[in-house]
Design a protein around this nucleic acid. Sequence first.
DNA 1: GCCAACGTTGGC
DNA 2: GCCAACGTTGGC
Length: 159
Amino acid sequence: MQYWLMKSEPTEFSLDDLKRRPNQTEPWDGVRNYQARNMMRDQMKAGDRAFFYHSNTDVPGIVGIVRIAREGYPDPTAFDPTDKHYDPKSDPDKPRWFLVDVIFERALSRVISLRELKQHAQALEGLALLRPGNRLSVMPVSETHWRYILELEQQPEPV
DNA sequence: GCCAACGTTGGC
DNA sequence: GCCAACGTTGGC
């Protein structure tokens, strides 16, 4: 069982959007980065958990937890010329892009902001999210870091 | 809106 | 295979 962190801009797709989906499930489509692609195609397993992270927003941070509902399969939006993530170089016979389905598990009791995570940089050393200039939209989280962040959730909001 | 960091593209 | 140009990400 592995742990992950997945970023989404809430104006594009928020945790609430996921919660409102009929089966609370959504294909994580549109990722066009090879490292993220490799993780979704090769490493993420059904039942793995991921932090749902809101990026490019007032208070960027972790807002909830999702589970991997379906393991890697070709991203259909890459084949659709009308889709904004269309990639003519992705061939259905030899797909370039892959995705997983995620299912809503729960919202955190409070948002754990990037700012707060940075205040724990020592305990969270090695967390990809905190690496300067990090732009990966899907990244692994160690079990130690996962548990540490869940303990933060139980503590009062820092000022 | 700015801009630093970083990935991708394509000419050579 | 190098690397400049360009596009994107995402915090601030």
